[in-house]
Amino acid sequence: MSWSNLFSTSIGKKLIMSLTGIFLVIFLVVHCYVNANVLFTNGEENFNRAAHFMGTNLLIRVTEIGLFAGFILHIIQGYKLEWLNRSKRASRYAVTAGNKTSKWYSRSMALLGSLILIFLIVHLAHFWVPSRITGLEEVTYDGKPYHNLYLEMQHVFAQPWAVALYLLGCFSLSWHLLHGIQSAAQTMGWTSKNYFPIIRSVGQAFSIVVPLIFALMPVFMHFGWEIDLGSITLLF
């Protein structure tokens, strides 16, 4: 068998989910790090400068195309697999084991993914569309103009419904990652007797910490909170 047939088998289809999922997890780390600037003092300038770098660096703009492709592939393949897997049992059980034998979130990846997708569409409309297409207000640092994405965040998160929706998005992401990270590692064949506990623990920590940092952003912006780091800046 050649590698070209690899992605058409049942294992190969899961490999696509795993590879795109891992790619999206790496994106989350970068996104979280850049945006965490808004949580600290002088967040406006630091975040706007970081967003400027992300928006103008050629390598990052090219990667952005890959990111969209990764999202689309993960979403389409996820729905296809869900539909395909559901079709494998035409007559359903009258009684199911439910949570006795598996975790609810491991069985609800399509539902959690759909909630994240709804969040993602609103999120792109809130921030990606203005910063790339329709334009943003500008602010000047050291005589150079920058998009004031921070101001846009303040506008959006002044609305309580937006804060609630973003919190729901982070909540769904957390459960999705809680299953997704260890599942991706299992599909890649990385888990073994020695590594399984480590992968599971790291995955669990990531699933809680990263969505929690994301969740703090709308809350901090809504209430105008900030953390004083003194002379330390998060700007790369």
């Binding site: 289809k13 899961k14 697999l81 491991s106 064949g189 073994s192 399984f196």
Partner: peptide
């Protein structure tokens, strides 16, 4: 396809480990 819910391991009368699935992958 396997979506790694591990209900199989919980129900297996011989308690076959899902780590075998990682090996298969």
């Amino acid at each position: 396809s396997c979506t790694n819910t591990y209900a199989c391991e919980a129900e297996c009368p011989k308690e076959i480990s899902v780590l075998n699935i990682a090996r298969l992958n």
